[in-house]
Design a protein around this nucleic acid. Structure first.
Lengths: 94, 94
DNA sequence: GAGGTATTTAGAAATTTTTCTAAATACCAG
DNA sequence: CTGGTATTTAGAAAAATTTCTAAATACCTC
């Protein structure tokens, strides 16, 4: 939802790895969990954070919940970083 | 130094605001502090985190320490996000 | 070197985050 | 509707982060 939330969500290594897994395509919570040495509850917690940050969304199918990347929010982050790098060609003086 | 460190450093609102201040040019720790309702010690703590993440560097002059942006690390972050967004045109199937 | 300003370090308190276990919910298949 | 699998929620413990106060360090000026 908020900008700050997105950055927070991206700050955890586990969550970044989840996003990388999802890059290849949708996965269920269970599938995701199998890549980590953590309980399902913990994975669920991380997924919630990512969901709240709008970095992923879910779609229910049969008895599973599939998660997938939502890349649109990443644009905003890119833009922020871009602007930070921005007009900084000749700032060497006091 | 490390990728994870950079993300962590960027995850705090105060630190992001510090970076935005530095976008306009170098500032001393005191100057930076005057923009926040925090003690100098806390500002110093945040500056240390940013420094360890290589997002800023310092240069001493007279009795002051001036901080400035180091944009080079931001490239890496941009690249990571870019790759995450990457080839995701036709992933709609199971 | 004495005093002054700028900044950092140390240590502790408060807050937030991450993780777990156990229980709850959701939904499918028979 | 019963049993089974998938996932989440609640609550608590452990760990990490943020902040403060007080003291230390650094360096400049006189």
């Amino acid at each position: 939802m908020s900008f700050a939330e997105t950055f927070k969500a991206l700050s955890d290594p586990v969550r970044r790895q989840i996003l990388e897994l999802l890059k290849k395509g949708p996965l269920s919570a269970g599938d995701i969990g199998s890549h980590f040495d953590m309980t399902g509850a913990t994975i669920s917690y991380h997924l919630k954070i990512l969901k709240q940050a709008d970095l992923i969304f879910e779609s229910r199918e049969k008895n599973f919940i599939y998660y997938q990347l939502n890349t649109s929010v990443l644009e905003e982050i890119m833009l922020w970083i871009s602007e930070l790098k921005g007009e900084n060609s000749d700032v060497e003086s006091k």
